[in-house]
Structures are given as C-alpha cells and as structure tokens.
Design a protein around this nucleic acid. Structure first.
Length: 171
DNA sequence: TACTAAATCAACG
DNA sequence: CGTTGATTTAGTA
C-alpha cells in the first residue's frame, strides 16, 4: 500500500528516554550499542523521532551521561565512540520492563539519596573469581558495593551469555 | 503546596 | 561524542 499516511504528526511516545535507550540496548545481541545505533533503533521503532528536529539526540546523550544505569562498555573499533550497556544493577529490572532508575544520577547527587549498588549474584566461581550474571536477579545481600559505575566493574567476570570484557577505568 | 523524576535547552572540551 | 549545568515541566505526596 502507499505510505501516503506518512505520519507527519506522530505522537511522541510516552516513554522515558531511559526506557527507549534501554530497549534499544537490550534488543541488541551483545546487549551493548554505539550511540549512533541507539539513535537508529529509536528512529526505526518510533517514527516520531524521524523528524527533522534532532534535539532528542541531545537528550539521549544527556541520559547516557547522567544516569548511572548506563555504563560504557568498551570502545568501538573505529573511533565511533563507546559502546553503551546497562549497568548490572539495573539489568534485571530493565529486562522486565521496569525502567525506573532508582539509583543516583552521576554528579547530581543528594545526601542520602544514593541507593546502595547491588552486587552481582555469585552464581558460580570461575578461576577464583565470582561470576556475575546480568540475566539473573541478585541474590546476595551480603556484598554492599560495586567498584565503579562507569564501566563494567568486573573485568574478570563474564555475565550469563557472551559479553566482551571491558577495560577497567584508570582513576 | 512542596518534592522529585524526567525533559529540555545549551555551553563546553 | 560525552559531561555537565540550568531551567522547566509533569507527576505525585
């Protein structure tokens, strides 16, 4: 049929940017995407964002940078920026459609407002290292922190499935 | 009303 | 591209 109903005025989806970004990332096989691919996924699935107005891209970048639930997961091969992934502490909730980012935002933190970061659940041991699993709910209430929020925090651990290792931050 | 999460606009390196 | 600040808006207590 013709695409004469080219939806000039497609309504903006009532989903948060966190939800949109997360869906894009989770829809990918390695569960990580480059910024440009996040753009593309959102445009492919929500025609509203195909408009000339590209301010929404700023908001996407803003959310990636600001929210702890997004972490950088390595660099692309040819300098197209970072891969973006879901923080393990949020992976399970996000996978089930709960996109509420309860944990603190980077930089903009309020006293006592930072929720404790959940550890990976020790489902197995590999080479003396605790195995992390992004796909299973955390089960260990004993560990109380994650080393870092910006990068995949456990370079020696592989989540459930095929994930690349990520360099650790140097700070 | 006050508080907060999210959205928006935008400067900067 | 990625961070960050400032401001506004929407939802809720």
């Amino acid at each position: 049929m013709t695409t004469t109903t080219s939806d000039f005025t497609e309504e903006k989806p009532n989903q948060s940017y966190i939800a949109l970004i997360s869906k894009a990332i989770l829809a990918s096989e390695p569960k990580k995407l480059l910024l440009c691919d996040i753009y593309q996924w959102i445009m492919d699935h929500y025609p509203y964002f195909k408009s000339k107005d590209k301010n929404w891209r700023n908001s996407v970048r803003h959310n990636l940078s600001l929210n702890d639930c997004f972490i950088k997961a390595g660099r692309s091969d040819n300098g197209k920026g970072h891969f973006w992934a879901i923080h393990p502490s949020n992976f399970h909730d996000f996978s089930k459609g709960d996109y509420h980012c309860r944990r603190a935002r980077r930089r903009v933190r309020r006293l006592g407002a930072q929720a404790p970061l959940l550890p990976p659940h020790p489902s197995a041991l590999f080479g003396g290292h605790r195995a992390a699993c992004w796909c299973c709910p955390p089960q260990s209430p004993t560990v109380t922190y994650l080393p870092t929020r910006l990068y995949w925090p456990w370079p020696h651990l592989q989540p459930h499935g095929i994930f690349p290792l990520v360099h650790t931050p140097t700070s």
